[in-house]
Simulated scan of single mutants.
Amino acid sequence: MKQTILIVEDDNDLRENICSILQNEGFQTMEAINGTQALEKLMPSVSLVILDIMMPGISGIETCQKIRNFSYVPILFLTAKASESDKVHGFYAGGDDYLTKPFSYVELVARVRALLRRNEFYKNHSSDHQSTSATETLQRHNVILTVNPPQVTVRGTIIELTDTEFELLYLFLKYPTKIFSIQNLYESIWKEPFFTSCANTVMVHIRRLRMKIEEKPEKPVLIQTVWGKGYRYG
């Protein structure tokens, strides 16, 4: 069965070119010209969203935030913005990857396949947990993580985590006090070779996780920074 990709781009030529390339690669595509149309067309059958940031009406950032209210579908941002602050803003909104215009179609296809592969790994990993570790529960301080069903409780309240955040927290709770380097975390969670540019991706996800589990995210006591070495769960 072909995987479906939703392309959200107001530039007609670029959107049609992306659709053509992905169809030639064996994907099924859907199109939206703005964020409002994307929200209307996004269905559970969509495997990935390619989302332009600079669009009339609802921006890509706002569209991403709205999608994250009901779906954790992988989102690849397309944008002409290339600064680190722009990328951080996109990751905070819930994006999974970031591709700056102009880009090669070879790189686009590579990013798409990597995101789909990573998402499939999470699904399979979750299935493995359910079949082999059905009763696994990890607890430290006021945080309780159960694997089947996947659930995280912080100070008595159930919180929602993305797949990446869940995997990060699982790793920290599984090996408390162990210091994880940024490279170690990236290669363990993202299952891809680490490059210097990947460090920011890890740091943004750590910040998002802290926002959800720390009483005072600006002064974290659970996920601690070990300067010059990495992170550990206190």
Rank of each mutant, 00 (worst) to 15 (best):
V109G: 05
A199G: 11
G35L: 07
A82R: 08
I144F: 01
G57H: 00
S45A: 12
R207T: 14
N142L: 03
S181M: 03
I182V: 15
I144K: 14
I5V: 14
E160M: 05
F194Y: 13
L76K: 08
Y98F: 13
R210K: 13
K219P: 05
P102H: 04
P44E: 09
P220N: 07
G234A: 10
N34S: 06
K174G: 05
R118D: 02
V147C: 11
E218T: 15
D52F: 04
T29S: 07
R140C: 07
M55N: 12
K123W: 03
S59F: 01
K2R: 06
V226D: 02
L78S: 05
M203P: 01
N124Q: 14
L173D: 07
Y72C: 10
Y98G: 09
A93F: 09
R155D: 15
E215S: 13
T196L: 09
L99R: 02
E84N: 12
L116C: 08
V8S: 04
K2M: 05
F91I: 11
G234V: 04
S45N: 14
R210Q: 12
K216Q: 14
V8N: 07
N142Q: 10
N69M: 02
Y170L: 04
V143S: 06
N119R: 07
D97R: 11
G156L: 07
P150W: 00
S188P: 06
R118G: 02
T137G: 03
E160G: 00
T137L: 07
F180T: 00
P220T: 03
L115T: 09
D163A: 10
G60N: 08
S197P: 04
N17T: 11
A134L: 09
V73Q: 04
E120K: 12
T196R: 10
E136D: 11
S47R: 09
A199T: 10
V73K: 05
Y175M: 05
M54K: 10
V204N: 12
L161R: 00
I144D: 00
E136N: 10
S133Q: 15
R117T: 12
L161P: 13
N119I: 04
G234L: 08
V46C: 14
L171S: 13
N24W: 10
N17A: 12
M30K: 01
Q3T: 00
L14D: 08
I179M: 06
F194W: 09
P44A: 14
H125F: 13
G234D: 08
L138S: 02
E31P: 02
P150K: 03
E214V: 09
N17W: 05
L209Q: 02
S71Q: 13
E25K: 14
L14Y: 05
P217N: 15
V202D: 00
I50S: 08
P176I: 12
N12S: 10
P217W: 11
L145Q: 14
L48H: 09
K41H: 03
G228D: 08
K123C: 05
E136I: 08
C19S: 15
N17Q: 15
A80S: 09
K212F: 07
I58C: 01
Q23V: 14
N24Q: 12
R117G: 02
I7F: 13
N148D: 15
